[in-house]
């Protein structure tokens, strides 16, 4: 808390900046370019079209689910313990994949199987949103939902891998839209839709307002609860989309995968802070962060680094991100 005395002075001098040096806004991009360059130099396979396509494919799942989590964090405020967080994204993604696989396995048409899976996801989002709207801490509400969705996943799948076959799902895995893999196209579409909605519509701007200062938003006549409620539904729906993409890519729904991808989704959403000029959670930043994490995982694999180190690298990454957030000077007066 030693900087508390320094921050007010800095505010008087430069009222609009919150203590973060200007170069920091570009440091994140610099790190990405640096890492990509290192991989490109040390592994000849890294920049081949096939590998780039695979990396983008890997990034798609985390990016799509990350967009949803980013919306929740933007609308709920980025203070983690009391602000917006959705811990159930991983479990809901896993559940959506399993529901789609089991439904398709029973002979349901792929579009209706996907619709059913998304319906389940939205239902989870409605429960999350209602619990938070009633006044439960998001951390606890979504923690409970994480347990419920994870458990439902086990019950529905019987804790075995459920194969996901059918031409639709194979198209999701191998097909191409305008030269891009379908998953990547879905990622870009989700980015365009959610990104435009958050930055170009009244609803999006108001969501930002609610997240940054709910009291001010209420005074200004907004109903914060409504925006928060919707944010959890968006998050759950996008998690469902991500889960279907993941299950299609693996050609099966693997139980227990939801818990594993949760950490990556949280990492991607919070890392977006580094890629935004104002150092806040953003959708564009989430996209870059997802690509970066996927490139990192992919590059490590190409270099033959043991997979155990990737987790450590991600942990260190979060810490670097958070050191940046600490530089921003947030939370000094709490």
């Amino acid at each position: 808390m030693s900087t508390t005395t320094a921050v007010p002075e800095a505010r008087i001098l430069k009222p609009l900046r919150r203590g973060a040096p200007r170069w920091l806004a570009w440091a994140g991009y610099g790190a990405v370019v640096l890492v990509v360059l290192i991989f490109a130099v040390s592994s000849s396979a890294f920049l081949t079209p096939g590998n780039i396509s695979a990396t983008l494919n890997q990034a798609a799942v985390f990016a799509v689910a990350g967009f949803g989590l980013a919306v929740v964090i933007i609308t709920g405020g980025d203070d983690v313990v009391n602000g917006g967080i959705d811990l159930s994204v991983g479990a809901v993604a896993g559940l959506a994949g399993t529901v789609a696989a089991v439904a398709a396995g029973t002979g349901m048409q792929p579009p209706s199987a996907i619709a059913l899976a998304l319906l389940m996801s939205v239902a989870a989002g409605i429960i999350n949103g209602s619990a938070v709207a009633i006044g439960l801490r998001p951390l606890l509400a979504t923690l409970a939902m994480m347990g419920i969705a994870g458990s439902l996943n086990l019950v529905i799948s019987g804790n075995v891998k459920v194969p996901l076959t059918g031409t639709t799902f194979e198209w999701l895995r191998d097909g191409r839209v305008a030269g891009l893999p379908v998953a990547v196209a879905v990622m870009l579409l989700a980015f365009a839709v959610v990104g435009l909605a958050m930055t170009r519509t009244t609803w999006g701007i108001r969501s930002y307002a609610v997240g940054q200062n709910p009291t001010a938003a209420r005074v200004a006549g907004l109903n914060p609860v409504r925006y928060v409620f919707v944010s959890y539904i968006i998050s759950a729906a996008l998690a469902g989309v991500a889960g279907i993409l993941l299950a299609s890519r693996l050609s099966s729904a693997v139980p227990g995968l939801g818990d594993q991808i949760l950490l990556d989704i949280v990492l991607v959403a919070f890392m977006s802070v580094v890629f935004s000029r104002r150092l806040v959670v953003s959708l564009g930043g989430t996209l870059v962060a997802a690509l970066f994490v996927a490139a990192l995982t992919n590059g490590f694999t190409l270099l033959g680094v043991a997979s155990q180190w990737v987790g450590a690298a991600k942990g260190v990454l979060i810490l670097v991100v958070l050191a940046v957030v600490a530089v921003r000077g947030r939370g000094t007066a709490r």
Binding site: V80, L263, V266, G311, A312, G315, I318, A326, G331
Partner: peptide, 23 residues
């Protein structure tokens, strides 16, 4: 020392600790 919010700090320690365990 670094004044990182406890949720995120311990989340990253979770990542790193899981890695350390596997190593």
């Amino acid at each position: 020392l670094l004044r990182i919010p406890s949720f995120m700090a311990t989340l990253s320690v979770w990542f790193i600790g899981t890695s350390v365990q596997q190593l």
